[in-house]
Simulated scan of single mutants.
Amino acid sequence: MEPMQMALPVTLPDDETFSSYFGGEQSLEVTHLKSAFAKREAQFQFTYLCGLADSGKSHLLYATCVYAQELGLSTMLLSLREVLHYGPEMLDGLDGLDVVCIDDMQLVAGNESWEKALFNFYNRFNEPGKLLVVAADLLPNMLNLFLPDLESRLTWGTTFQIRSMSDDDKAEALVKRAKMRGLELSDDCSRFLLTRLSRDMRALLDVLDKLDHASMAAQRKLTIPFIKSTLGL
């Protein structure tokens, strides 16, 4: 069965790459994920990313898929938050892909049908040439999973516990992301956004996207007065 085409969530910006990751391209997690691509031909590669909101784990999943596409590999990012209500049939056919990333694993904890489907998918996917990355907000032994065997599988690979971003991290990330778009965002402007808007990184990136379009349309630089006017603050 062919996998359903719900690959990369449209809510994610198109610049979620390893180079834009706030931890840096030389971070242990990025270095590991890149090296996993080279190792997968000899042995199945599994990585578990653990972190709370704004830790950047979803960014790493998306970046992994982008990197896979650049290498010409078939890939899919499955956000369980987006597809949970469709049922575990969403996993059908994914074992035919080279790289699979699964986000929000904690949402299926206690759901017997989903846990069994994920366990069976893991076993089918576990072969040379394949790369699997899973993200959740807690470590496997803290998820209260129904299936002990699934918990065991989730501990087989390399696990990274990623800290949440501080306000300084977020301000720096906004400036960096703006620069990648050819947009100049001063430190003062980034801090203004953090003090006046939600500190959720995804929401902040959505705002940056809106400001980018507004700046291009008006041929204006990003200043605090322009930001206020554009966002109605």
Rank of each mutant, 00 (worst) to 15 (best):
M4A: 11
M4G: 06
Q5G: 03
L8C: 01
V10K: 11
D14V: 05
E16Y: 08
T17F: 00
S19D: 15
G23V: 12
Q26S: 15
L28N: 09
A36Q: 15
R40H: 00
E41K: 09
Q43S: 10
F44K: 02
Y48T: 06
L49D: 01
C50G: 02
G51M: 07
S55R: 10
S55W: 13
G56D: 08
K57V: 15
L60E: 07
L61I: 08
C65E: 03
Q69P: 00
L77M: 12
S79M: 07
R81A: 11
R81I: 01
L84I: 14
H85W: 08
E89K: 10
L91S: 04
L94I: 13
D98E: 08
V100N: 02
L107P: 08
L107M: 14
S113N: 10
L118K: 00
L118M: 11
F119H: 11
R124D: 09
N126H: 12
N126V: 06
P128A: 02
K130Q: 02
L131Q: 04
L132A: 02
L132W: 04
A136N: 05
D137K: 13
L138Q: 15
L139S: 11
P140S: 05
M142E: 15
L145P: 08
T159W: 00
F160P: 09
R163E: 15
S164M: 14
M165V: 15
M165A: 15
S166M: 10
A173L: 14
L174P: 11
V175R: 11
R177L: 14
R177D: 10
A178P: 09
M180Q: 12
L183F: 06
E184S: 10
D188I: 04
C189T: 04
L197W: 09
D200A: 08
M201S: 14
M201N: 06
L204H: 09
H213C: 10
A214Q: 15
A217T: 15
P225K: 09
L231W: 02
L231I: 06
G232R: 05
